[in-house]
Design a protein around this nucleic acid. Sequence first.
DNA 1: TCTGGGGTCCTAGGACCC
DNA 2: TCTGGGGTCCTAGGACCC
Length: 355
Amino acid sequence: MDVDDRGVLCADVDAMFASIEAIERGLGPEVPILVGGAPEERGVVSTASYAARRFGCHSAMPMAQALRLCPQALRFPPRHALYAEYSRRVMSALAAFGPLEQMSIDEAFVEVGRSGISEALGRAVKEIVRQETGLTVSVGIARNKLVSKVASDVQKPDGLTVVPVGQEAAFLAPLSVDRLEGVGPKTRARLADFGVHTCADLVRLPLETLVATFGRAVGQSLYDHARGCDDSPVVTHHNLKQISQETTFARDLLDRPRLWATVRALSNGVARRLQAHGVLARTVTLKLRYADFQLVSRSASLVAPTDDPSVIANTAAALMRVNWDRRRAIRLIGVGATRLVPAESWLQLPLPLDG
DNA sequence: TCTGGGGTCCTAGGACCC
DNA sequence: TCTGGGGTCCTAGGACCC
């Protein structure tokens, strides 16, 4: 599609996990809900309802802390299969409006064309999602993905923001730089060292300064994004790059049998998902987080790609044997599969001794 | 009872090849 | 004796996103 004909809608389900629990349990919007792991198991908040957010609760906050802020909140453990079912219905409703790129369980871009940059389209999308699922979405519509995403985020919940063509830079100018995709706490702090706080400030930094400070790729994207420029297309299909499974123990562990058993269980889970996706892994990665929160990752490449649970487990266990400092208790173990190849492409290769 | 789990992308440095 | 660079692959770590 020609750049000048583009229009992108970004839709983000409001507090999705908490909203679904409210629907399923018949709870009103005034009830503070926290979805996430148990505080005694070092759980964190996956989603806080808007009522809970008023007490200062938010995603990624330790559940123990969230419950101290809002003791009357109802906590529910996540039900991912249920949320995935709602997600399918949301995505299917959105897909009626154009080619769709699903970014996560609760967020998607839709290519709606230049004529779709309108409040009428935004209202239509919100209404259909509400009819089909009972969920509200916050919607942003703009000329490109970057600006539509920021727009979907400035008014929540149940928001609708349309940025007319040509108004991208003016729309971003007063906003804090960390509204931009890819600007997190570290980048925000380094930009603040330059006196840069808003997107308007960022526009004043020369490209050379940004590249020297953040590297070629990040520097260039900061330069473009501050101006509302983004020509990345809506991509309807992504190839999976890695599959991993990890677990945090309720208490730090030095107990070898339990650690080996966990490596085996995680490896089984990874292998099952490799098989389900029809892919093989060429590299196995072991991830350890020590009690002091230090994170270590070590990987090993295989002679032949695999989806065999015992090959993955033995490789991860070997990495563990070599790399685990046994004086240090372990908080988290993860097993990952990377450098994935389609199973059929590998099987079609001739064996070395053939012919 | 501070700090989950599943991902993506980028960078730097070393190995290796020409 | 001194000492190339470009390109690719791989690994480890870090920033970031939902």
